[in-house]
Amino acid sequence: MDTLTVAHFLAGSLVLLSFSLLYQDRLPPLINTFAAQSLVLALAIGWQAETQHAPHLLITAAIEFGFKTVLIPLVLTWIIRNLKIHRTVEIVVGVGPTILAGMALVGLAMALMMRATPGIGVLARQDLVFALSVVLLGMLMMVTRRNAVSQVIGFMSIENGLVLAATGAKGMPFVVETSVAFSVLIALIVTGIFLFRIRERFDSMDVAVIDQFRGER
């Protein structure tokens, strides 16, 4: 296997895990899948550090592993245990159509990137396709889920896609990758506080309750 094929394999696994995030209807497996996605991302970044001879990417990989694979899943698990929602089953509406929509998004990402980036190698272009797919699938997840914790995970998987794109490109300044990685940590703190506040106020994690509170539905 040459170097690009390995990168390709890892990036493809990220997209696959994004699909798997789409249909997880219980929170602990959802968090585990997210941790797995982040682990694969950390591996992908580590591989990029090796092939691009860019040692600073190892730091990014370490940050990704430490925060997204270990810390954030632990914190989220702790949160859902504290909120006593780890046993609830979220009703994911229309798994079939959602997966079909996700496939359409990957097709869109492929069509777009193939046109937008002529002149670079096929595998590098497909890496960008995978990154955009992960971003779009994360957004799709945020739109289709109703539970606030699932939305937070959707948001974090968008970040995963962004970091993948940033590290895949050669010569991207180190500060971009690290700041993206750190922004996730800030987001975790904010959303953690936010989740407890929602629970305190509304006695539920379903964002539809907030809509009811605002008097629209």
């Binding site: 998004l105 869109l108 990402a109 069509a111 777009l112 046109r115 937008a116 779009l136 957004m139 799709l140 945020m142 739109v143 109703r146 939305q151 964002v207 539809a208 907030i210 809509d211 605002r214 629209e216 539905r217």
Partner: peptide, 27 residues
């Protein structure tokens, strides 16, 4: 000004997908 959070997310998402589709078709 008075949509739900999911509706805002949906608007952003649909707008992004539409723009990207436009870009994919005409670029």
């Amino acid at each position: 000004q008075y949509l739900t959070i999911r509706a805002y997310l949906g608007i952003v998402f649909v707008a992004l997908v539409l723009l990207l589709t436009g870009l994919a078709i005409w670029s």
